[in-house]
């Protein structure tokens, strides 16, 4: 069970991210995304914990000097895990622009034109 202020923060972040009004960036961890808000940085990460053999998700608040102000970490199966993983998924979708990518794929496929690109020297592949 997470604290009420964290629940509110997650809800607000989800709302903003779903509206594509939050610019999430990727960090040096493959599944971690960060959002810079004034003097703080919010980080959300999702990883497989090799100690507990369980999937985990977290949300961390860092101040401008990199000190951890507060954070929440939840394992799969715990209360509110789904709420936090939804935020992580939205951050990921926002970073990779997944909706926009699908939209452009569908537009291409729904059009009457031929899709794909023909190689200039197709003979090279046949040899």
């Amino acid at each position: 069970m997470i604290a009420e202020n964290f629940r509110l923060l997650i809800e607000k972040l989800k709302y903003k991210s779903a509206k594509r009004e939050a610019i999430w960036a990727k960090t040096s961890r493959d599944e971690e995304f960060k959002l810079h808000l004034g003097k703080v940085t919010l980080l959300t990460d999702c990883w497989y914990d090799e100690v507990t053999f369980n999937k985990k998700v977290d949300l961390v608040i860092l101040n401008e000097d990199g000190e951890k102000i507060d954070g929440v970490i939840l394992s799969k199966g715990e209360d509110d895990y789904e709420l936090l993983i939804e935020l992580h998924t939205l951050a990921k979708q926002s970073y990779y622009k997944i909706d926009e990518t699908f939209k452009s794929i569908f537009e291409e496929l729904d059009s009457n034109k031929v899709v794909g690109e023909k190689k200039k020297h197709e003979l090279d592949d046949l040899i």
Binding site: R29, T41, L62
Partner: peptide
Amino acid sequence: ELIVDIKNMHEFTTGYKKTNLN
């Protein structure tokens, strides 16, 4: 970016998050 990388490196060296560090 450096601040976040330090956090990630700290988690990596302590074994808290052993994987996925690029």
